[in-house]
Amino acid sequence: MKPSSTATGTIIGLTLVFLIGPFIVIILAALTAGNNLAFPPDGLSLKWFIKVFTVESFRISFLISMFLAVFGTLTALIVGVPAAYAIARYDIPGAGAIQLAVSSPLIVPGIIVGLALLRYLVIPTGFTIMAALFLAHAALILPYAVRVVTSSLQNLRVDVEEAALILGCSRLGSFFRVVFPNIRGGILAAFILGFVTSFNQVPVSLFLSGPGVRTLPIDMLAYMETTYDPSVAALACLLAIMSVGIVFLAERFLGFSRYV
């Protein structure tokens, strides 16, 4: 009494073509030997992939995005791990309001945050755009970091920490000797999730861009407006491969999806 497997197979196939197909199109389009974005490609070559690396603005914005993703995530973890620990282990007064504040970056649309920071932080105080971008990305990643680390802490029994205290550890000592080694996987998963989120982020960074300071996705959007060549396609492929690679490795060695 099951639905026919031909029918379900067709439905799954069509769905996957719709979801994944465009990536295959863009990969082939980026491999074109011609000068126009076209499908099917006009001969095959890697020239657009090579061209990407010669565009200076891409190189700069790639480094900026990399910097934001790595250090923004690290900052979010430094602020977020203690918060996650408090949420998992303490009965905090006003927990509802605090949780709401911590998760506000998930609720407030990023574009508005970018605009507000530009208008009320960067312009009046002379704060640099780069610093504002950094803080905004760190705050954006914070709720992800807190969520992943909290759930990883909830899987570690409290009495394991109590045992360490009784055996002679200080509170801080028990965190580093007992808690940390057991939530390392969760922290790494939080790092990866934060990295990918920050790196792909557009709305927050939209208004926070200035001369020479742009994240890579914003730079790609700007490039598209003026130039219609396959280099953005090539770059899009590279980014897709990077994200997929990171997630694949994380899943392979960490069971990433357990944490997300």
């Binding site: 465009p22 990536f23 792909n200 557009v202 790609m220 980014l239 897709a240 994200s243």
Partner: peptide
């Protein structure tokens, strides 16, 4: 997991 810019560009 893939950049939405990349995902949309394909279209």
């Amino acid at each position: 997991m893939i950049s939405p810019v990349a995902r949309t560009y394909a279209w």
